[in-house]
Amino acid sequence: MKKLLLLVAFTCFISISSYSQFYGSFCYDCYTSIEVGGISSNISGLDKSSAKTGFYLGFLVYTEISDSFAIRTGTTYNSLGAHIEGYDEPLQLHSINFPLGLNYIKDYKYQAFVGGELGTNYFGTDPRLENADSFYDSFEIQDNITLFDASIYFGVGYIIADNIDINLKYNLGVTNISKYPEQNLKKNWLTLSAAYTFRY
């Protein structure tokens, strides 16, 4: 069932991106980008935890405000979490995020970006909970984890060709995702991605 949901989400992203080639008809001075990549994430404040790898998929919109600067918005899927000592399976959070930031391009070769991201934690798995492998139990993680969180991000990119970019981005969590006041858990992750950008 989990794989089916992820497949549906992936299909939705592809459907949206397929019409992005014509986005200029709906948006003045903007272009779109589809990103796919890998994530190394951890949760600060979680005892005896280490980084886990995950998957990243993004659909981004760049609205130009000058020749060098653009507003960067969109929607991303992030497979986040951490490995916990003593457990075979990691703590897993499936997060849909909404970034808003500023993008800078130099000589149409180099990029830099900075901004903030609103994150969501709809479902996931915690190996410390009983029956954590069950699909229905995956929603019980919301008993311990907040539905919304925020992070700030900064990154750099290199434009290989007119439509191909390589980006490296780091997100630093700024809000506590634990519902227990005595805990202070924050999501932090590094993303390496390749992007196909529909520049006009």
Rank of each mutant, 00 (worst) to 15 (best):
98 F>Y: 11
34 I>E: 03
122 Y>E: 10
50 S>W: 08
148 F>K: 07
64 E>A: 11
123 F>G: 06
160 I>K: 06
105 I>Q: 07
153 Y>F: 15
83 H>M: 09
55 F>L: 10
75 T>L: 14
89 E>A: 12
159 I>L: 01
127 P>M: 12
77 Y>F: 15
91 L>T: 03
105 I>P: 00
51 A>R: 02
66 S>H: 11
158 Y>C: 12
53 T>P: 00
38 G>K: 05
43 I>G: 02
127 P>W: 12
76 T>E: 11
51 A>Y: 03
66 S>K: 10
119 G>P: 01
133 D>W: 10
101 G>I: 05
78 N>W: 04
78 N>S: 11
86 G>E: 09
160 I>W: 02
51 A>P: 00
57 L>P: 01
92 Q>D: 15
76 T>M: 04
73 T>M: 07
44 S>D: 11
111 Q>G: 14
154 F>Q: 00
147 L>T: 10
133 D>P: 04
90 P>L: 05
101 G>L: 08
141 I>M: 14
143 D>W: 03
137 D>H: 14
126 D>T: 09
137 D>Q: 14
65 I>F: 05
148 F>M: 11
83 H>F: 10
42 N>K: 02
150 A>G: 02
66 S>D: 13
104 Y>N: 01
37 G>Y: 04
94 H>N: 14
67 D>I: 00
137 D>T: 14
156 V>Y: 07
118 L>A: 07
75 T>V: 14
64 E>N: 14
92 Q>C: 14
128 R>V: 07
122 Y>R: 01
58 G>M: 05
81 G>E: 06
60 L>R: 06
39 I>P: 01
133 D>V: 08
136 Y>I: 15
31 Y>W: 13
